[in-house]
Design a protein around this nucleic acid. Structure first.
Lengths: 245, 245
DNA sequence: CGACCTGTTGAACTCCGTCAAGGCGTGTGG
DNA sequence: CCACACGCCTTGACGGAGTTCAACAGGTCG
């Protein structure tokens, strides 16, 4: 991991924070273009603590919105309970990603954030982040970019939901998970680890568990993937790319 | 097309701008909480010009992203052409709303913005807006809130797409159009004007034109709505509310 | 008038949801 | 250590909502 201030003597704590790039992943989730001094300002407002066991919630939907959370390790699902009592999984998040942004401008988080594995996060108080954004144009730009990207990604999900068959959505999901895993340099690119349950995946994709199971079974019978309990093995990557179009 | 501040009496110009609240609607789409002086700063970066006839594009998907556009009057649809050549309608926008926000952080608009009626817009150069946000915390907060709200709205669309039948989605759409129209104090609340084609509505809702037509016919046969060429007439508002749940 | 576009209607089909049963892995208690 | 129960996943059979294909109606514009 790079540290462009290695020569200067610093407080050990700050050093550690710089090292973890706020979130502990290879990619900094925030402050990518800031100078060392500016980055320090950002670190000053971040609470690095926060470790959650599988199933524990980082925030609940009825909690009042106060902070964003940068995921340092592990993984998180966002889900909410609808009026009719049904749960809907809104997304899965991995190291380097920010959760809580969906709640910006609202007074409550609209979702439960649930750790899927042993998960460490940084808490970033939003009011302090806003103030800092006013002082650091690059940070402001970064947040705006991140939100814009999020909107585009949600729009894409809508379009995919409308135009793609269940099989294609499943393959696209697997592909994205694999890409994500590849970018984080965890595991090899053929074995996609699934920290979440198949039921959660189905829910996220807008399918019944049975439909997801059938899609996976079909893909396995065609020799494209191998379906393991907590893992998808990619047997024919070209066929996957071809099928998602 | 430029800010021709020098060529007009200054007070008159500012007065006119204040009057139109940037976008010409009753609701200010930006600068809601700013003081008069701050609002003036905002107006300084806005180009008020821009009139488009039905079918004309305000920006194209391949244009490089430079500005947001506040709709002053008329209506706009956002659509994009997918790789396979199919068009997908991403949304409909009305006076007081901002378009272009989906492109923030990207170098191109990903959509075509097409006027549905005679439409007037204000152009807000995004780089200048960013600078101004750094100076005006309330404006920054407003933009962030707006983006957060957008993300939530897109998430809701996904959930609705997964959980609601075509009939419910159609009713929800009509309901939202009506609410929108009501908030803008245009027309009465029983006659919902449709500036876009039925085909566009179907596309937006992820349906085939035939399916939308069938849904509307069914609702009409049940005495809940009346289906006109460019208008939906609401006959039984209670039944509508009840059906969308 | 005829060409054309949008919207509507009918009939057959298909994908996915629903309902029901059973398999498999894990944890617990006898 | 095995028996059993409980979740989670899988498989099968069936039905229904929405798509597809095709024909047609109604308005608009040359």
């Amino acid at each position: 991991m790079k540290n462009n201030r290695g020569s200067k003597p610093m407080l050990h704590l700050i050093d550690e924070m710089l090292d973890c790039n706020i979130c502990g992943s290879n990619h900094r989730c925030l402050g990518e273009e800031l100078s060392a001094g500016q980055l320090e300002e950002l670190h000053d407002i971040v609470n690095t603590h926060g470790t959650y066991k599988p199933g524990e919630t980082i925030f609940k939907m009825e909690d009042s919105f106060k902070s964003l959370y940068a995921i340092r390790s592990g993984s998180v699902k966002l889900e909410s309970i609808l009026e009719d009592g049904k749960a809907t999984v809104k997304g899965f998040f991995f190291p380097g990603e920010l959760i809580g942004v969906e709640a910006i401008g609202d007074n409550k988080y609209g979702d439960d954030a649930i750790a899927l594995e042993l998960t460490r996060v940084c808490e970033i108080p939003f009011d302090r982040l806003e103030v800092l954004c006013g002082a650091l144009p690059k940070l402001q730009h970064e947040i705006l970019t991140l939100l814009g990207h999020k909107i585009r990604s949600r729009n894409n999900a809508i379009v995919n939901g409308h135009h793609l068959s269940s099989e294609k959505r499943v393959l696209l999901f697997i592909q994205e998970l694999g890409l994500n895993q590849f970018n984080r340099h965890t595991g090899d690119s053929k074995h996609i680890h699934l920290p979440m349950s198949k039921g959660d995946i189905a829910n996220y994709l807008g399918l019944r568990p049975e439909s997801l199971s059938r899609a996976l079974s079909k893909l396995q019978s065609e020799g494209i993937i191998k379906n393991h309990p907590k893992e998808i093995e990619l047997l024919d990557i070209d066929a996957i790319s071809e099928r998602v179009g």
